[in-house]
């Protein structure tokens, strides 16, 4: 058991937070979510589709899926480029999903998809004041992370690399610095490509990992979801176990005492 992750007083039995974007179907997504063991999963807010006679409920079943699996929904403000858009989207999400938790995204532009730090801090402050539990998606700048914590965010979620890139953790020292300084949970969000990236995030001191694409677009999403679950757990266990210090030179692991003295 890798212990629980506590965010804003709520205990989650898994340190892996899942995104749901990129899955080819809800059925494939369901299997991957179950395999991941996640207890917190992001959803996006979008306009409802126009009704087509005889059609199924469509994407509204995203809501039903999480409900059925007993997974807490974490609505995001994906696609918001301004403070105003992000705040209104969060308020709509609170109404639609019945939760005041929000993964806050204020994105700088649709090419880099990088967080816009000034708007992010402003929106975070406004939402905290409005009673939200804010989990901001931010860059890997330790000072931005500190500001987000200062305005009352319940966690900080720095990126490892740009969204969907699968490049892993480009600036491990900054992630380590953010984790060392934060007094709220740090969740590595975005950039994860494979299991070792997730384990590294935990070894750098993160409290959890949020990923979507690495699983939903893997050749075998269910197997990758399980790999991520184990990787997060392994990284967390390794931190608790206390790794050996790095050395410049080799250190024999077998004692030289009692060694054979052969005349060869």
């Amino acid at each position: 058991m890798s212990g629980v992750l506590t965010i804003a007083g709520v205990e989650l039995g898994s340190r892996l937070v899942m995104g749901t974007g990129g899955a080819p179907s809800l059925l494939a997504l369901e299997d991957a979510l179950v395999a991941s063991g996640t207890e917190l999963t992001t959803v996006a807010m979008r306009r409802v589709a126009r009704p087509t006679p005889g059609a199924a409920a469509g994407d509204t079943s995203m809501w039903g899926l999480l409900d059925r699996l007993g997974i807490r929904a974490l609505p995001n403000t994906a696609g918001c480029f301004s403070v105003r858009e992000a705040v209104l989207t969060a308020q709509l999400a609170r109404e639609a999903c019945g939760t005041d938790w929000v993964k806050l995204e204020v994105i700088a532009d649709d090419v880099t998809l990088l967080p816009e730090p000034l708007g992010l801090v402003e929106a975070a402050e406004e939402l905290v004041r409005d009673g939200f539990t804010v989990l901001p998606y931010c860059g890997d700048d330790p000072i931005v992370a500190r500001r987000l914590e200062d305005v009352g965010c319940a966690a900080v979620m720095p990126l490892g690399a740009p969204i969907g890139s699968g490049l892993g953790i480009l600036n491990p020292r900054n992630i380590e610095a953010i984790a060392a300084a934060a007094s709220v949970p740090v969740i590595l969000d975005a950039g994860i490509g494979t299991a070792s990236d997730a384990a590294l995030a935990m070894e750098l001191g993160c409290d959890g990992v949020l990923l979507a694409t690495a699983v939903t677009r893997a050749v075998d999403p269910v197997q990758m979801a399980r790999a991520m679950r184990l990787a997060v757990e392994a990284g967390h266990l390794a931190v608790g176990a206390g790794r050996i210090p790095r050395r410049e030179r080799a250190l024999a692991s077998s004692s030289p005492e009692g060694r054979l003295d052969l005349a060869l």
Binding site: G19, T20, G21, G22, A23, L26, L29, T42, V43, A44, M45, R46, R47, V48, D59, T60, M62, W63, A73, L74, P75, N76, A78, L92, A93, A96, C97, K103, E105, A212
Partner: peptide, 10 residues
């Protein structure tokens, strides 16, 4: 008017 719902994403 905007009418929104939760969909896959993030």
């Amino acid at each position: 008017v905007e009418v929104v719902t939760a969909v896959q994403g993030g």
